[in-house]
Simulated assay, not measured.
Amino acid sequence: MLAFTLRRLVVALSVAFTVSVIAFALLHLSGDLAITIAGPEASPAQVEEVRHQYGLDRPLPIQYLDWLWHAAHLDFGNSFFFRESVTALISERMPVTMRLGAIALTLSLVVAVPLGVLAAVYRGTAIDRLALSFCVLGQAIPTFCLGLALIIVFAVNLRWLPVSGTATWQSYVLPSVALGWYAIPAVMRLSRNGMLEVLSQDYIRTARAKGLSPTKVVLKHALRNAIIPVVALAAVQFGFMLGGSIVVEAVFSMHGIGHLAWEAISRNDFPVVQAVVLILAGIYITLTFLADVVNALLDPRMRVA
């Protein structure tokens, strides 16, 4: 188990290093950063002064190592637009996105796993076809279209839930549905395929031959093994939700990290974009690593492989 964990840790660190290089390159691929900071009306002397002030006249490897050292200490500099610490901005906005992602992931699992189990148990029946149709529908509707439709129906017409904001728990209902909707098909298909594979195993036939009830066979013997791949997928989907919340937060005017990223991109606020990319990638890599470890604990075959 230790060797498996170390191998996965090396892979995670390698990916994190690659992402850090890409995030650092974002600043320099967009043009002359000194001109961007100084403004289009700045004189050449002012541009050179800014270049020296921010250390942009140093070699790129030195700039990268200096930036990586500060980023490792959660120091991403100051925002060009907001004129305050990037770390403070992200710390203020991150809880909104984390709550939204957690609620959306929980909602998708609560809906998708039982639906996948039912589709596998009643394979080929109307229940299975209905579940697969729901799966296709979930992938066909874009998140922003679903968000706008939810606003029109439940906020404007019925007035059951607020349109925007984060003041109360009701404010998270519609955004969570819109964000979790896209994850439901993937989780449902994986749950269904996992159950179909497990239900065909010899030990399941043995359990049925012993006279165990169908409910006990499905829930106690089949589900605990079929659910293992869902653990890894849930971690991946949570990372996707955090990164993909930019659309949902823009539609519902939620000031989370996704909305902050949208503001930073639209205003060429590169330090904020850089920090958001690095932090979200770090969360995604950490979740994937933890999911691999948990899967290895649940399924010893992964450690052997």
Rank of each mutant, 00 (worst) to 15 (best):
S91D: 06
L100K: 05
A102N: 00
E92D: 14
R99M: 12
A71C: 08
P44T: 01
L60N: 09
H70W: 09
A45Q: 06
D66R: 15
L68S: 01
L89G: 03
S30I: 02
L60W: 15
A38I: 01
Q63V: 02
G116N: 09
A12P: 00
I22F: 10
F81M: 10
Q53Y: 13
Q63K: 10
L13K: 00
I103Y: 04
A112K: 00
V117S: 05
A102S: 10
A45S: 12
T87E: 09
L107V: 03
T97G: 09
L105G: 02
S43K: 01
P40M: 13
F81L: 09
V117I: 14
V21A: 13
M98T: 02
R58W: 02
T87L: 14
P59H: 13
A42E: 03
P44A: 14
A119I: 03
G55P: 00
L13F: 14
W69E: 12
P61W: 08
L74W: 14
L60D: 02
S43M: 03
I103N: 00
I90G: 07
Q63L: 05
T106P: 00
F80T: 00
E49G: 03
H28F: 15
A72D: 09
S43H: 07
A25G: 13
P59Y: 09
T125K: 13
I22P: 01
E49M: 11
R83N: 15
A23R: 00
S30R: 13
R123W: 11
G116M: 05
G116W: 05
S30G: 04
W67C: 02
A45K: 12
A38Q: 05
S43W: 06
P59K: 04
Q53N: 11
V86D: 03
L105H: 06
H52T: 11
L33Y: 14
Y54K: 02
R123S: 07
V110T: 11
E41I: 03
I37S: 05
V117R: 06
T125C: 03
A126H: 04
T125G: 07
E48T: 02
S91T: 06
V15H: 08
P44G: 14
E92W: 06
E41K: 04
L74T: 07
I22E: 02
A104N: 07
Q63C: 05
L65I: 06
H28T: 06
V96P: 01
H52S: 09
D57H: 13
H70N: 13
E41L: 07
V121K: 11
P95S: 14
G77K: 05
P44C: 11
V50H: 08
S30V: 09
H70E: 08
L56A: 04
G77E: 08
I90R: 04
L109D: 01
A102L: 13
Q63I: 01
V86M: 07
G39V: 03
T97M: 03
Q53E: 12
D66T: 15
S108I: 01
F24P: 03
